Simulated assay, not measured.
Amino acid sequence: MATILAVDDSPSIRQMIKVVLGPAGHTVIEAGDGAEGLAKAGSSALNLVITDLNMPVMNGLEMIAKLRGLPSCTGVPILFLSTESDEGIKQRAKQAGATGWITKPFKPEQLLAVVSKLTRA
């Protein structure tokens, strides 16, 4: 199955992602902000990155732009998981390199379906 990096400053959201994706056979690596996510992405072979937008230290948009500069993350899908639903922010995320978007709160089956589609797992 897939190795997924979950980047969110909320421990409960990271835990929820792990509870949903773990039983489906996915390995979930957690990071609490964009800088930590970037560091972990550089040291792991990833199949997918799930990130929040608003985080301390480095936000999701900044992290995505930096991830897209790493050779190891060139083709890795990036899914935004955020409370933000503004079209302008969605466009900025897409321009930075995001593949898709799910609005919080999310339904577990919705997350599983999108992850399966993006990872082909």
Rank of each mutant, 00 (worst) to 15 (best):
G37S: 09
A2H: 00
D8E: 11
A45D: 12
A24W: 08
L112Q: 14
H26G: 06
V114N: 01
I50F: 03
E62I: 10
R68W: 06
V19L: 12
A96Y: 05
K117P: 00
E87I: 14
S12I: 14
D9I: 11
A113C: 05
Q91V: 13
R14L: 07
T74V: 13
G42N: 14
V7D: 03
F106I: 13
E30S: 03
T51N: 08
D52G: 03
N54A: 11
I89S: 09
S72E: 06
A113S: 09
T27Q: 11
R120P: 02
F80N: 15
G37K: 08
D9M: 03
P108I: 15
V49G: 04
V28L: 05
A2M: 03
A98R: 03
K66T: 10
L5P: 03
A113Q: 05
S43Y: 06
D52S: 01
I64Q: 02
A24E: 08
L67E: 01
S43C: 11
A45N: 14
T83C: 13
L61D: 05
I4M: 03
F106E: 07
N59Y: 05
P105A: 13
S43T: 15
E109V: 10
V115I: 02
G34S: 04
K107C: 13
A6W: 00
A35D: 12
K18W: 05
D52K: 04
N54E: 09
M58G: 02
L111E: 05
L61Y: 01
A96G: 06
K117V: 00
D52N: 01
G32Y: 01
T51S: 10
F106T: 14
R92N: 07
S44F: 07
L46M: 11
C73F: 07
T27L: 12
A65V: 10
P23S: 11
M1C: 09
E62C: 07
S82G: 15
T3E: 12
S44Q: 14
G60A: 09
A2K: 02
N47S: 13
M58V: 05
L81K: 10
M63V: 02
V28R: 06
A39W: 08
K94A: 07
S82E: 11
I4E: 03
A24R: 13
E36F: 02
G42W: 05
T3A: 07
I4S: 01
G34D: 02
L46P: 03
C73G: 10
W101C: 07
G60Q: 11
G42P: 06
D52F: 01
R68H: 10
G42S: 15
K90Y: 04
S72V: 12
A24N: 07
A31C: 01
S85Q: 13
M55E: 01
E62K: 09
